[in-house]
C-alpha cells in the first residue's frame, strides 16, 4: 500500500480510538437534530422547520464549530509527534516528509468528513422522512455538508502550517486558538467596524474581496447566498447583490485556502531537521 494511505489510515484509526470521531460526530449530530426538531424559541414555534431555515442556522453554527474542531484535532500533528519522539522513528522509514504530511492531512479530513456526513447527514435523513423541502433546499443542504468539510480542511491545513513552524506543542495550541478567534470572531467585527467608520469609503468593489480573505466568510457566502430560498431567510439578500461571486468561485477560493497553507506547511516541515 502507498505510504501516504498507510499514514492516513493510521490517523483515522487513531481518531476512532481516541474518540475524536465519536465526539465530533455526536456534537455535530446533536446540533443538527436540535436545530431541526426543537423549533425556534423566539417565534414559539415547535416542530420541524423548513429545510432552508435549518441550512441557515446550521451554517451559522458550523462557522464557529468546524474550525475549532479542525484546529483541535490537528494542531499537534507535526510538533506533537516531534515532541513525543514518534517523528524521529517515522523519518527513518521509507517515507518522505511530504507523504507524512499529506497522509496525516487526508486522515484528519476523513475524520471531519465522517463526523459531518453522519452528524448532518443523519439529521437530513430524518428530515427526508418528514418530506421537507424542495429540490433546491436539498441542494443547499448537500452544499452545506460538502462545504463544511472544505472549511474543516482549510483549518486543518492552517493548523499544520502552525504545527510545522513552532517548536513546542503549547505554542501551537496558543497560536491555533488565536487563529480561531481572529478568523471566526474578530475578523467580521473589524470588517464591520471598518465599513461603518469608512462611511462607504470602502467601495463595493473592495468589500467582497475582503470577504474572500477569510475562509469562514467564504463558507458563509457560499451557504447563505448561493441559493435563492436560503437567501430569503439569511438576511443576506442585500449583501449577495454586492458580493457577486459564483458558487464555483467561492469553492475555488476555499480550495486556495486549503492548498496554500498545506504547501507552506510542507515547506516548513521539509526544511526542519530532527
Amino acid at each position: 500500500m502507498n505510504a501516504t494511505l498507510v499514514i492516513a489510515g493510521k490517523e483515522i484509526s487513531d481518531g476512532m480510538r481516541n474518540r475524536w470521531v465519536l465526539g465530533a460526530t455526536l456534537l455535530l449530530a446533536g446540533l443538527a437534530f436540535a436545530l431541526t426538531f426543537l423549533g425556534s424559541a423566539p417565534t414559539g414555534e415547535l416542530g420541524v422547520k423548513p429545510l432552508a431555515v435549518v441550512v441557515v442556522s446550521l451554517a451559522s453554527l458550523t462557522i464557529f464549530l468546524m474550525p475549532l474542531i479542525a484546529l483541535l484535532i490537528s494542531y499537534d500533528a507535526i510538533v506533537g509527534e516531534v515532541e513525543r519522539g514518534c517523528m524521529l522513528l517515522l523519518l527513518t522509514y521509507p517515507v518522505t516528509r511530504r507523504q507524512i504530511m499529506l497522509g496525516k492531512f487526508l486522515g484528519h479530513v476523513a475524520i471531519l468528513a465522517i463526523a459531518t456526513l453522519i452528524g448532518y447527514g443523519g439529521a437530513g435523513a430524518a428530515m427526508a422522512f418528514g418530506d421537507q423541502g424542495d429540490a433546491q433546499s436539498w441542494q443547499a443542504f448537500a452544499t452545506l455538508i460538502a462545504s463544511s468539510i472544505l472549511l474543516g480542511a482549510a483549518f486543518v491545513a492552517l493548523a499544520y502550517w502552525i504545527s510545522a513552524s513552532v517548536r513546542e506543542r503549547s505554542t501551537a495550541a496558543g497560536i491555533s486558538i488565536g487563529l480561531w478567534l481572529a478568523f471566526v470572531v474578530i475578523y467580521d467585527v473589524l470588517l464591520m467596524g471598518l465599513l461603518v467608520a469608512s462611511k462607504g469609503w470602502i467601495s463595493d468593489k473592495v468589500f467582497p474581496w475582503l470577504l474572500l480573505a477569510n475562509p469562514a466568510d467564504i463558507y458563509r457566502l457560499l451557504n447563505l447566498t448561493a441559493f435563492e430560498n436560503v437567501r430569503q431567510f439569511s438576511g443576506m439578500s442585500g449583501l449577495s447583490e454586492q458580493a457577486q461571486f459564483a458558487p464555483a468561485t467561492l469553492v475555488a477560493a476555499l480550495a486556495v485556502w486549503i492548498a496554500v497553507p498545506l504547501v507552506l506547511a510542507n515547506w516548513k516541515f521539509s526544511r526542519s531537521e530532527s
Partner: peptide, 25 residues
C-alpha cells in the same frame, strides 16, 4: 532503528502498531 526513549501511539495495540510500521516498510 530503535531510538532512545522510543514512543508509540498510545491508543493502538501492539499488533496494530507493528502492522503500521510493517506496511510502511
Amino acid at each position: 532503528f530503535l531510538p532512545e526513549n522510543v514512543a508509540f501511539h498510545d491508543e493502538l495495540t501492539g499488533t496494530q502498531t507493528l502492522r503500521f510500521y510493517a506496511r510502511l516498510k
